[in-house]
Simulated scan of single mutants.
Amino acid sequence: MPELSRRRALTAAAALATAAGVTTVTALTASASEDPGHPQHAGHPGHPERSEHSGHDQHAPASFDEVYKGRRIQGRPASGGAHQHHGGGYAVFVDDVELHVMRNADGSWISVVSHYDPVPTPRAVARAAVDELQGAALLPFPAN
């Protein structure tokens, strides 16, 4: 039997890490797709329905207005403005300050505060921002 070399050990470790990462991503994708606020196209999980003519979702996220951990969070269809392109025509606010959000190609949402933690809905992105801010005020995001 051949002796285990450093190269073979590292190759095996990389293969195991890759397999574990794929399993984690698959589990996260499956749990996100179970969220009732996550629009999906039947037969194509993770891909929101899009109108052929408008390029916008046929089922836009619902508006919300609530207090979460003592902070007022709101979300509603955007009425124009500089950030409409990235947010897909949807605006999110924390204590009446707009939270810059972006919708990813897979339908998940991120914000300038929690950029590396995609979530399934605008409400979830607002809550994640409140969690990340830990009581600090959200400052307005400068328009370029």
Rank of each mutant, 00 (worst) to 15 (best):
L133D: 03
A12C: 00
R7S: 14
P122C: 08
P48F: 01
E98T: 06
T11A: 15
E49G: 10
R123V: 09
E66W: 05
V25R: 11
M1F: 10
R72I: 09
A32L: 10
D106W: 04
S114D: 12
Q84M: 12
P39I: 05
A12Y: 03
E3S: 13
Q58D: 02
A32W: 03
L16M: 13
R8K: 14
T29C: 02
A14E: 08
S51A: 04
G135E: 00
P61T: 02
S51L: 01
R7K: 11
Q134P: 06
L138I: 04
V67Q: 12
H115K: 09
S79C: 08
A136N: 11
P120C: 07
P122G: 09
A19F: 11
R103V: 07
L138D: 00
A27N: 09
Y68W: 07
E34S: 05
N104C: 13
D96A: 14
T11L: 15
A30W: 05
V113I: 09
E98P: 03
G88N: 03
Y116M: 11
G135K: 06
R50L: 13
A143H: 04
P120S: 13
G43I: 02
A14D: 05
H41M: 09
D57Q: 03
F141A: 01
R6N: 10
A128N: 11
E98R: 08
V113K: 04
D131W: 06
Q58V: 15
